[in-house]
Write a protein that binds this DNA or RNA. Structure first.
Length: 111
DNA sequence: CCCGTGACTTCCG
DNA sequence: ACGGAAGCCACGG
């Protein structure tokens, strides 16, 4: 549905719209964009957004709720610290209540 | 212009 | 159920 101007633009836009204390996955964003298998590109967008403080890339994790991008963040536990600061329960870089705080753009933004 | 890489996900064997 | 391979998009050399 509708054309896709740019994967990057969309991915960043969605990531920026992630509510406080919520998280989502690359696949969820990619699926909303109409390209489930393009989840990697979403991660690429996060990488580009890394310099963009307007994009909370720390709220984006993989389908398992694991902070896969922690390695690309400053330091190492910064990503986890940020999420924990928002009330997200994380254990060993994995979100324990992932499904509870999961924010799916396809559901929240489908209107 | 062609090849390789990258923070993922899904399918097939 | 587990493991390996493919697919997609964009950017850099």
């Amino acid at each position: 549905m509708q054309i896709k101007p740019n994967f990057f633009e969309k991915a960043q836009a969605i990531a920026r719209q992630i509510p406080y204390g919520r998280v989502t996955s690359y696949g969820a964003i990619a699926r909303y964009l109409g390209a489930v298998k393009s989840a990697r590109t979403v991660g690429w967008a996060m990488n580009a957004s890394k310099t963009d403080t307007s994009v909370p890339a720390h709220r984006v994790v993989n389908s398992k709720g694991i902070l896969t991008g922690k390695n690309h963040f400053e330091g190492t536990s910064l990503m986890q610290q940020l999420l924990e600061n928002e009330g997200v329960l994380i254990e060993n870089y994995q979100i324990t209540n992932f499904k509870e705080i999961f924010w799916d753009p396809s559901i929240e933004l489908r209107l």
